[in-house]
């Protein structure tokens, strides 16, 4: 019964979790519920938790969430089917998405999509036969100044090209650690789902400094010595800091 699903073999026959898994999940679900004044607010993170276990919103996951929150499975399904990040079929280890909203599409997203879909031989929402890559047409990622943008498990790859997108999926399938704008490597769909359930993975410090577009304005301001009007407390603070630095010498 304790099936581990490293690929996308669906646990279709698994109607419940074994005792140890259920106890672990129930403990985490309780931690989620404790974050909110009303238990039902925990439903979205609990669905992320289910995906961290099963790689999609499984029937047993729906039953689990309903049981924890005293809802019906129909109520849980109604919510799960509303949001695009909840998968109704076992997801690949990596979701690779190409932004095809207008600006990214024009900057190259449409071309990247054509290339990568042909290269992988799959369409929107489909998964490669090895269970590693699920391909998605994405709507805006809020990274337009880095367009065109490709993502893998919600880590961004900026100023992408058809070649870089192909190299990305090759590296992911080969098990190479691929650095992203965020984390230093792409976590698996299940690992990322666990973070989205609100459990930090300790990787927030990864990724280093922001990319050039983020810093474009501040770099120009420094070069031109442009500043906002000084805050009234700033002169005093600078002096304090200088004197404390001198004291420490």
């Amino acid at each position: 019964m304790a099936m581990k699903h490293e690929t996308n073999v669906p646990p279709v026959h698994a109607t419940s979790y074994d005792a140890a898994d259920r106890a672990r999940l129930a403990d985490e679900a309780a931690q989620i519920v404790a974050r909110y004044p009303d238990p039902r607010s925990a439903l979205l993170p609990i669905l992320h938790l289910v995906q961290s276990e099963d790689g999609y919103v499984s029937p047993r996951g729906v039953a689990f969430a309903a049981d924890i929150l005293d809802l019906t499975p129909a109520q849980v399904s109604a919510v799960a089917t509303f949001y695009t990040q909840y998968k109704r079929h076992p997801n690949g280890t990596y979701t690779v998405g190409v932004c095809v909203t207008a600006l990214c599409a024009v900057m190259g997203g449409d071309a990247i999509w054509d290339e990568i879909a042909e290269y992988l031989g799959i369409g929107d929402g489909e998964t490669t036969a090895d269970g590693l890559i699920t391909l998605e047409r994405l709507e805006c990622n809020a990274a337009c100044d880095y367009a065109p943008v490709v993502m893998a498990n919600w880590e961004f790859f900026d100023n992408a090209t058809p070649q870089s997108a192909v190299a990305l999926v090759d590296d992911l399938r080969a098990g190479k650690a691929v650095p992203t704008r965020g984390a230093d490597s792409v976590a698996t769909f299940k690992e990322v789902s666990h973070v989205l359930a609100g459990f930090p993975d300790g990787r927030g410090d990864e990724g280093g400094e922001p990319g050039a577009p983020t810093l474009q304005g501040i770099a120009l301001a420094k070069q031109k010595r442009w500043t906002a009007p000084a805050l009234p407390d700033e002169g005093a603070r600078r002096r304090t800091r200088t004197s404390s630095q001198e004291e420490s010498r």
């Binding site: 004044p37 949001y83 809020a142 992203t180 965020g182 984390a183 989205l196 990787r203 927030g204 410090d205």
Partner: peptide
């Protein structure tokens, strides 16, 4: 009791906010 409702599609931002 305050809340931040962050879109789910930016996992690294979520990491930074949780740690912050």
């Amino acid at each position: 009791h305050a809340f931040v409702y962050l879109r789910g599609e930016v996992v690294h931002v979520y990491r930074r906010l949780l740690e912050a």
